[in-house]
Nucleic acid binder design. Sequence first.
RNA 1: GCUCCGGUGGUGUAGUCCGGUUAAGCAUUUCGCCCUCUCAAGGCGACGAUCCCGGGUUCAAAUCCCGGCCGGAGCACCA
Length: 539
Amino acid sequence: MADLAPEQGSKEKEKEKERHDASQPHLPPLEGAVGGQVVTRFPPEPNGYPHIGHAKAAIIDEEYARMYSGRLVLRFDDTNPLKERAEYYDAIREGLEWLGVKPDLEKNTSDDISLLHSYGRKLIEAGGAYVCTCSTDRIHDLRGKGLPCECRSESADILERTDKIFGGSYRQNEAIIRFKGDMSDPNTAMRDPTLFRIIEGNHPLLGDKVTLWPTYDFAAPIEDSHDGVTHAMRTKEYELRNELYFAILDRLQLRKPRLLEFSRLEFDGLPVSKRKITPLVQEGILSGWDDPRLPTLAALRRRGFVPQAIRRFVLSLGLTLADTKPPFETLEAFNRKIIDPLCMRLYFVPDPVEVKVLNVTPAKAVLKNHPVLDLGSRTVGVYDSVYISGKDAEGLKAGDVLRLMELYNIRISSTADLKSGSKSDPDSSESAYSPEKHEPREQKTASAPSVIVAEYAGNEVVQSMPKVQWVAKGDEVPFKVLVPKELYVGEEYNKNSLEVIQGFAESFISTLKRGTEIQLVRFGFCSIDSSNSAILTHR
RNA sequence: GCUCCGGUGGUGUAGUCCGGUUAAGCAUUUCGCCCUCUCAAGGCGACGAUCCCGGGUUCAAAUCCCGGCCGGAGCACCA
């Protein structure tokens, strides 16, 4: 209700307010933070699609920047031409935009390549680094033993070597620049780590003009310092490199940001690693990087998660070093609460079974799109037959009474077909539609009756009466719901990671746009994926 | 192997720095009840942790100290 920031759009203000609502999970205070002067940074490497792990880092970075009215820098850490690709810069930008993370500045580490080079040269000149021409094996070996190599000594040709490496006279693998640390330091990150290496690749932004590339260890501290970052957050696997980070800045006499670590975010069964995902995408087992079984932002989005839920979820995790995998259900709970009031309710019957109702006159049912909120309604004509789900039909016996939601009550007269009707082949679909191409698994159906006969049993809503959703015969459209399961069970790809549930839905469903979030009554929340399919977001 | 970091109910966390005022707050899950023409949301409630273990310091320890156990990370010319 504050009357501040009059120039800001009120809609924008609302959004901002919502996002930082005090009643929602929030982060602890930042040590050493001064209002208006905090600068954080999100430094992804453009080497893949952004996932939930990126979301955690980006959201924390942004929350802190906003919390102290500071600034957020998005810096693409693109110092390895072998891995970066132009499409990934875009994918990351898109992901952030969707998340609602708005950087105040966007830049690339590669923009500063000459700055980085000059600091590299400066470091060598100050005796803080040297050119090493040893083989990778030898370096590895000596590092393990805690012993220095000849290149390290102050010997003669250091100037010559320096000119050579900056002048581009060395080829890939012939020389690197190493930090002069302590070869016997218990922290192996300090045993003369690599600061620059030669990569004769094609950088998406700089092409092949540059071949001497800084490593993350060198670029990160300098960039952070140079970008005015006051609080640099990274995941805890970098902890051992903090010492190096500060040592580099010390020797270069550059301002030191504060460093904070937090644990990585990953879900059980939902691997984030490219090693596990890429092959599945390439082999076509997954539909792409937005396959609903993936923890990528694109997948979460396609599956029906909203950014606000991801933000709340991430904030609820807090800043902790403990390595744990939070339950995916928690994310679902956040999402469910947010989307529930926005989702239209529709009827879908898996495994449809026809119910013919006697003694009834054709009716027009007006179905509410939401039980309590005013989201409008739709009208469905019912002659005398409807479909209900196989599961609801299963236990019925003559005399049972149930309510077809928002229609009328029926009393079962006969389920005779149940017994005579095939106990046979559970995989043969008794419905007219046929499954499309590669469906991993068909919904298994116990012997379902083909037609149940019932009679009209009044229209009174009785609290205790079972209520089931239905689809009018004649109004039905074949519909399938993709149910994403764990992609990996342990180290193994889960062959049943995508279940496909077939059924009938109201024809109205096919008018919905892709990406529309709905709730299939007594089934779950779903994101419309095509005119005849949806993805289960969660129950 | 060496070094570093973690270890609070089924799960994720708050509290730990500045020891007592909560023998442990919140969320999620599960289970009840209420509401309800959904197995959703909402409301209420319940179950559930001797705060990894063992010592020590103290009138008092989840909180401090020591030892151990378990888990993770790093030891790349990746980030």
